[in-house]
Design a protein around this nucleic acid. Sequence first.
DNA 1: GCCAACGTTGGC
DNA 2: GCCAACGTTGGC
Length: 147
Amino acid sequence: MKSEPGEFSFEDLLRIHNKTTSWDGVRNFAARNFLRDGMKLGDRVFFYHSSSDTPAVVGECEVVREGYVDESAFDPTHPYFDPDSSRESPQWYRVELRAVAQFTRPVTLAEIKARRELGQMALVRIGRLSVTPVTAAEYEVIRGMAG
DNA sequence: GCCAACGTTGGC
DNA sequence: GCCAACGTTGGC
């Protein structure tokens, strides 16, 4: 999961009660499908800082609630409002994530790109998506790089 | 600031 | 359905 640290950083998440947040605002169908269909209770999730000086995976979360309707799309005053989504046929979904651990050593995008085993990572392949899948093998490599 | 790689919009 | 124009994301 990507977040711009200037908007919402991993440190911000750690400061929240229960270190838990509802991940709303995803408004891309491919990202939504990964989020809604691919994330299961207890799954580990990497937290990635995008559009920062050093884009990097900075920590780990876990899914504490699986995909459910993102009601922010229904509110005309909300920045994530989408008139095409309704309670009758919702388009957008969210999950709840809880921070598990901050990496002692962030794993930068440059390091990820330099590792052959990670060359096919969706994060690298489809860089603009805010939600991308991580394989078990990729997960282990990055955990190793984080120390 | 530039660019790639999309997604979206709307005319036809 | 096609395509041009434009918007968005995010790395560099």
